[in-house]
């Protein structure tokens, strides 16, 4: 039941173990987990352990782990990272929801899906630079508006939180739309129609029936986008300017300029911890326990 929460947000009916039968402690299906689990432990768990070990070295764990909160620059980077991620999450949902709705309702799903897949095949590096060309003072938007005589001075669209939010929303939009679409596709449209037949106006039927049923998709899209946004650093560096530093940039500076792997690892683990805290808080709403804890308390 790994993903129901991320993708649909509800705990599905247990499909194995008929009522009345004693559930065995282990069944044959369990064996299928082993190859993937062993692979992940070796290919990913081992590198992570290397990082964890380093976070305790150097000037000691206490110093390394407190530095994120005691250094003003890192503290504001942490706050800024959270703010940017939140802004990106909200805009992905607001912009992605109508698109996912159209996908779920339309017969042209294939074309709409193509639009989602087109950018994810293009390197995110190129997409970031393309956004710079759209947003800079002499870029597409400002040049056009100036030529039309709508504005005199260029709008400040880049090197601030607005710029980084626009760019990252563009990059992360597919990760919001797909879970939303998966949930919306499964909503029984007869329910909305029934509400309308019972006299509800279409907008009311949509708000009272469709939206609540789609909420699990909203929560899962929000969590996915938020967590992915926390780790971004190239897009914020190029589009975000100085007012929206990220903790990832701090880590990269520590690693590449100061060669301080110990503090960098600790800051990185702190960022991971923040991601986990956010997921845990999110679980209050989405029962993310089902994702990460398999229903454990």
């Amino acid at each position: 039941m790994v993903d129901q929460v991320v993708l649909t947000g509800h705990r599905p009916a247990t499909s194995v173990g008929r009522p009345g039968l004693r559930r065995p402690r282990v069944n044959g299906w369990a064996l299928l987990v082993l190859p993937g689990l062993i692979f992940t432990l070796i290919a990913f768990g081992w590198p992570l352990a290397e990082v964890l070990v380093r976070s305790f070295g150097g000037e000691g764990a206490a110093h390394n782990y407190s530095v994120t909160f005691t250094t003003p620059a890192y503290r504001s980077a942490l706050v800024s990272t959270l703010l940017t991620s939140a802004a990106v999450t909200v805009s992905c949902l607001v912009i992605g929801y109508p698109y996912a709705y159209l996908m779920a309702m339309s017969r042209r799903t294939e074309l709409l899906l193509a639009l989602i897949l087109l950018p994810i095949w293009t390197s995110f590096l190129v997409r970031t630079y393309a956004w710079q060309i759209w947003l800079q003072d002499t870029g597409v938007i400002n040049t056009t508006l100036q030529k039309l005589g709508i504005i005199d001075d260029p709008l400040e669209l880049i090197r601030n939180r607005l710029g980084v939010t626009i760019g990252m929303t563009g990059i992360l939009l597919p990760f919001a739309i797909l879970p939303l679409y998966t949930v919306m596709r499964r909503i029984d449209r007869e329910l909305v129609r029934a509400a309308e037949n019972l006299g509800a106006r279409p907008s009311v039927a949509f708000r009272r029936v469709f939206v609540p049923l789609s909420l699990p998709g909203v929560y899962s899209a929000a969590l996915l986008v938020f967590v992915l946004a926390l780790g971004f650093y190239i897009a914020p560096a190029i589009l975000g300017g100085t007012s929206s530093p990220t903790l990832s940039t701090v880590i990269v500076d520590k690693v590449q300029r100061e060669l301080d792997f110990h503090t960098a690892s600790a800051i990185g683990i702190t960022l991971l911890a923040v991601a986990i805290v956010v997921l845990t808080l999110g679980s209050r709403v989405v029962r993310i326990r089902d994702v990460f804890g398999g229903g454990a308390p």
């Binding site: 250094t71 003003p72 620059a73 890192y74 504001s76 980077a77 800024s80 100085t242 007012s243 530093p245 701090v250 500076d253 300029r257 100061e258 301080d260």
Partner: peptide, 14 residues
Amino acid sequence: NFGSVNDKFQAWLT
């Protein structure tokens, strides 16, 4: 001094 100057500089930029 890179570490300490950079921390101060970045905090000012922010």
